[in-house]
């Protein structure tokens, strides 16, 4: 189904990853699993995701690094940070780096679903706002410009958005 929410889950705890993925799939999400940062970025390079669920503490690349790269390469993705660590400092830090929210493990599924819903809505709103401003810009460009000029301007916009 084309309108399924596309979710990328990254966690080194395989059993956890499998269970949560299955549960979210049962709730109608399109879930992609990754057990470390490298795997996640690889998946993100070939597919588009609406939302990301990132474990903070992982061997190799940690959640923060993955977040930074994802936010650079995916304009509209909203990332939720999962952490089992006693200190929430680094999770809070991640929200400053662009993460939508964080959730300490373990959590109730309802809470996760709620945050996922909010994040998806935020993502959609952002995309909508951007689309609107794009339309506006296109409208402005179209006025008093040659067709060639409009095409050039659209290409620039596309480049900006990437």
């Amino acid at each position: 189904m084309a309108d399924k929410i596309r979710l990328l889950i990254v966690d080194d705890e395989v059993k956890f990853l499998d269970s949560i993925a299955q549960r979210l799939e049962m709730r109608g999400l399109d879930v992609t699993k990754a057990t470390n940062g490298e795997e996640a970025l690889k998946a993100a390079s070939v597919a588009q995701f609406d939302l990301g669920l990132l474990d903070l503490k992982m061997p190799g690349m940690d959640g923060k690094q993955v977040l930074e790269i994802l936010k650079k390469t995916h304009k509209f993705i909203e990332v939720i940070i999962l952490t089992g660590h006693g200190s929430l400092d680094s999770a809070v830090e991640c929200t400053k780096l662009g993460a939508f929210n964080y959730l300490p493990k373990p959590y109730e599924i309802e809470k996760l679903l709620e945050i996922l819903k909010d994040a998806y809505e935020a993502r959609m709103r952002k995309k909508f706002e951007l689309d609107m401003s794009r339309m506006e810009k296109i409208g402005q460009l179209a006025m008093g410009n040659s067709a060639l000029g409009v095409l050039r301007a659209l290409r620039e916009l596309d480049n900006e958005e990437k």
């Binding site: 705890e13 059993k15 269970s19 549960r23 503490k57 089992g84 660590h85 006693g86 493990k105 373990p106």
Partner: peptide, 15 residues
């Protein structure tokens, strides 16, 4: 760190 060690299996149990 110890909380992490405990929270992770708890998260597994939870899921």
């Amino acid at each position: 760190g110890i909380a992490h060690e405990i929270n992770n299996p708890l998260a597994v149990i939870n899921e």
